[in-house]
Amino acid sequence: MNKMNGYKVKTFLGKFCIYLILLLFALAFLLPFFFLFTGSFKTSSELFSKPFHWLPRHWTLNNYRQVFTKIPFFRYLKNTMIIVVVNIIGALISNSLIAYGFSRLRWPGRDKVFMIVIATMILPYQVTLIPLYLMYSKMGWVGTFLPLTVPGFFGNAFYIFLMRQFMIGIPKELSEAARIDGANEFGIFSSVIIPISKPALASVAIMSFMRAWNDFLGPLVFLGNDRLYTLSLAASMLRSNLNPNWELLLALGAVMVIPVLILFFVLQKYFIQGITMGGVKG
């Protein structure tokens, strides 16, 4: 009895400490957003006034109104969504396949080839941009969404690496069992490995979303017409040459964060599903 109580207190204290640490960190992570959201309702002169006010004295929707009128927000959103959705689909299909080939199957030289995959992540875009552009312009792709979407169907080293790391952890016995049941390799991939890899797939989906959502240089360089611009370019289209219009940027930041937050909440449920499905290794 005594022992029981002691244990409970211990875990209660432990829980309390962990909560406290998490809360403190969460607060630290959140404060800039507090500034972002409240700032987006402030007038430009109040935004920088000293002393600093936590809440706007005069709430204004003007910044949001300007974001929606000064740039073709919904057109940019539509363009962004097209690119984002195509990229997610491409990333999910191609990277899971490729990662499977790099983790669940043995073939000579596999790990050396995998090092080439890693190497392709390292070269910065600054030195590959010009040859890529020359290539795309010869192919007639410049000025279309193609350079921003098609390569997504041929794997991305970061996601291949990520998926591979997950698939390596899945016990071999699961595949063997399916093989004995007469499944072919693709069957094992699609009916055994993919369902287990849901958390990793969700990570890839989120990351490719983020990549496409935030990609600035790709749309800027490859889209020939500003009608095709994406939301990531909106920030630089909003600021005037002399006046950075910080208050508008804050409103834009808020607007760009909200849809992603919603999406993330949806996928968050998916993660929890992943948890309940756990016990893979049993």
């Binding site: 600054q126 941009l129 010009i130 312009s137 410049v142 800027l220 360089v221 017409n225 500003d226 630089s236």
Partner: peptide, 30 residues
Amino acid sequence: QFVPDGAGINNGKLLSALAGGTAPDLLITD
């Protein structure tokens, strides 16, 4: 076409376009 960052003069956009033969007929930069 509105091209942020000084008409792409410092971020590779103008360079790419010049190299690829797709530069505009006129530009203004700050």
